[in-house]
Amino acid sequence: MNTSALVKEYFREEKLPHIWCPGCGHGIVMHAVVRAIDNLKLDPEKICIVSGIGCSSRASGYMNFNTLHTTHGRALAFATGVKMANPSLEVLVLTGDGDCSAIGGNHLIHAARRNIDITTIAFNNNIYGMTGGQYSPTTPTDSYGTTAPYGNIDKPFDLCNLAKAAGATYVGRSTAYYAKQLTTLVENGIKNKGFSFIEAVSSCPTYYGRKNKKGDAVEMMKSLKDDYIDIKIAEKKPELAESKILMGEFYNKPEEEYTEKYQKIIDLLKKEQ
């Protein structure tokens, strides 16, 4: 499907253009999510997109599915309720670095631990964009933010390691530059019957870029290309991976899914009756 057909099919055209700044990577990430849904030929009526608060979470309003724009950090908690109450729904969570790993960090690790069938796409732009450039849990040490005027002394989270350690059964990372790989990761994440976590590295030229002299939108996009290396290549040629960030499929080990386990209890009790 070409892009304009994709827009007609899956977006609420009357809600576009989106609110994201020129040069922001979020539009590409949102496109990758919809492209993945289209590639998998999912029934749009059964898809529920849940988001929190922040730049990333505005995506839900543009996408023509069942959409739920929740409170800050709580997308995964709302999504867990939706999925538990109706396991036949395909639930996707669109969230940001602050939304899912600061205020919503607890929900992220517990949704992962349960291995509930939710595919989470974290738009990581390393900053709080909507509130104007404060440091987030993924802002690199020594970077600047409006609340880190002397440089950030915090150590950043590696979101993929966090999700994997917490129990996610599918984990991957790509960037807004590698849109095709990102699409594949989202597809695989949806296909995984369990908790999938995809870190979509985005860029924020308006705040993160400007505060940290990262250049304009094009230069930042170039960094999303040059600073990353696929884990498969890095494993074969470690010398190429020096000072690069890994991307690709990090973990893919399906385990029994949460709502299916619960269904077994229901079935057992029915038998006993």
């Binding site: 849940v50 739920l68 929740t70 409170t71 709580r74 908690a77 709302f78 999504a79 867990t80 309720g81 939706v82 999925k83 538990m84 109450a85 109706n86 729904l89 607890n106 929900h107 690790i109 517990h110 619960y262 209890i265 229901i266 009790l269 029915k270 009756q273």
Partner: peptide
């Protein structure tokens, strides 16, 4: 579960409220 319904113990009180709302949006009395 004995009536085909669902119970979940969430990670905190905030999540308990959020999931209750999510369950209702999915059509269940919560």
């Amino acid at each position: 579960p004995a009536i085909g319904g669902h119970f979940i113990q969430m990670e905190d009180e905030i999540a308990g409220m959020a999931a209750t709302l999510g369950g209702s949006l999915a059509g269940k009395k919560s």
